[in-house]
């Protein structure tokens, strides 16, 4: 046992300490101005296309196709939206189909991802890490590689041209990332809370649904929104697995509608785009903050 008391204190370089006072005061500088200009430019680049969508959607057909485009619409009209829902285009059918399949896919995928994500988070089984890696790996597989065999599979199961076929496709596509997202949210729940519930006599499922799930509502919603967004964006599955117009979703439906002779109906196209975007953008803003957490958890999985 020995103890040293006086450690030699390194001498303070005098003078330098005084020079730094007041340095942190806000002051316009060249660097700062450049940053502000660059951020502003990026803002314009980000917002301009969205403004352009809105502005064109509100223009008359004649103005929208004008060869020298007008930044502000001369006359604001709702004709394009009218045409979408009242015209020959089965837009509302596509919309309903998209909403229906994406919502159900989100619900099913969240349920399955919750179970798998909880298992990955709490581990304790010998195959846990193997299973979680398998699930992670499927996320990297290119959809299109197995779309052919999947087409044949659904053909034999008589699931082509059905909501169920689409929902199965969407769900599968979403489970890997969803499970890892949920794992990230579950990892944040202290184990002591679950152990309390075990001491209180609850079973594993009881703990999951009475304690863990109520505490993970933001995570559940975020994962749900994520799956919903993915399904809503999916073009490949409905394009290949659905052929009848009455079952078609928005992406292939719109693609088909605004091709050929309607290719230049820019006003209608932008109006449809606006309505197609709204559910996603609203959902994204609602969960924006936990989406960051969820994405990082899902993305940083396996590292």
């Amino acid at each position: 046992m020995s103890l040293t008391v006086d450690k030699p204190v390194p001498e303070q370089p005098a003078g330098r300490a005084a020079a730094g006072t007041g340095r942190r005061r806000w002051r316009p500088s060249v660097g700062r101005s450049i940053v502000i200009v660059l951020v502003g430019l990026f803002g314009v680049w980000t917002l301009w296309p969205m403004y352009w969508m809105l502005s064109t959607a509100l223009k008359s057909a004649k103005e929208a196709t004008n060869l020298s485009p007008t930044v502000w619409p001369h006359t604001i009209t709702g004709a394009n939206f009218h045409e979408l829902f009242g015209g020959t285009l089965p837009f509302s059918t596509y919309l309903v189909n998209s909403v229906l399949t994406s919502l159900i896919a989100a619900a099913v995928a969240v349920l399955i991802s919750t179970l798998a994500g909880y298992s990955f988070s709490r581990g304790g089984y010998r195959l846990t890490s193997a299973a979680s890696l398998v699930v992670l790996a499927t996320q990297m597989l290119p959809l299109v590689v197995f779309i052919g065999p999947l087409y044949l599979l659904l053909l034999r199961a008589h699931l082509l041209n059905t909501y169920l076929g689409l929902i199965i496709g969407y769900t599968t596509f979403a489970i890997p990332f969803g499970a890892w997202m949920m794992k990230g949210f579950f990892d944040a729940i202290p184990r002591e809370i679950e152990e309390s519930a075990r001491v209180d006599g609850y079973s594993r499922l009881g703990i999951l649904f009475r304690v863990v799930v109520p505490l993970s509502v933001p995570g559940l919603v975020t994962t749900g929104v994520f799956v919903f967004m993915n399904s809503w964006n999916n073009l490949l599955y409905p394009l290949t697995l659905v052929s009848s117009n009455s079952r078609q979703t928005l992406p292939p439906g719109l693609l088909q509608s605004f091709s050929g002779t309607f290719k230049t109906d820019w006003g209608g196209m932008m109006a449809a785009s606006l309505i197609t975007s709204l559910p996603l953008v609203i959902a994204f803003f609602l969960v924006q903050r936990s989406m960051v957490r969820g994405l990082t958890a899902g993305a940083l999985a396996g590292t």
């Binding site: 202290p190 002591e192 809370i193 152990e195 309390s196 519930a197 075990r198 001491v199 209180d200 006599g201 609850y202 079973s203 304690v211 109520p214 505490l215």
Partner: peptide, 20 residues
Amino acid sequence: VDVGDRDIAMVFQNYGLYPH
């Protein structure tokens, strides 16, 4: 015997209260 059937009660370091 599983935890829930042992007739024990436990106080955790961070309390382990159910936040919701």
